[in-house]
């Protein structure tokens, strides 16, 4: 991992159109401002990982497995 030291209000530019700015921290968290192209999805990593795990779990339930039995019994 590349590690850079930044002060509050200082930024990092990634490529030519992503800018990450360290904002004043309030309380225990650090606030980060992100400017990026609208089409680029931005996620909190831990939430992305939960969705990823859930998608993988859901994909293991494809027919004719457990999921189909469940669909039948829930009718």
């Amino acid at each position: 991992m590349l590690v850079l030291t930044r002060k509050s209000e200082e930024s990092i530019r990634i490529g030519n159109n992503i800018i990450i700015t360290i904002l004043n921290s309030r309380g225990p968290g650090i606030r980060v401002g992100i400017e990026a192209p609208l089409e680029l999805p931005i996620y909190r990593e831990e939430i992305y990982l939960r969705i990823k795990a859930e998608n993988r779990r859901a994909a293991t339930l494809h027919p004719p497995g457990l999921m189909m039995q469940t669909l039948s019994t829930n009718r």
Partner: peptide
Amino acid sequence: VILSFDSQSQQLTANLKA
């Protein structure tokens, strides 16, 4: 919405977050 299965409750669950 993507569905999944909760083995504990034997119920279908829906991923409303994503």
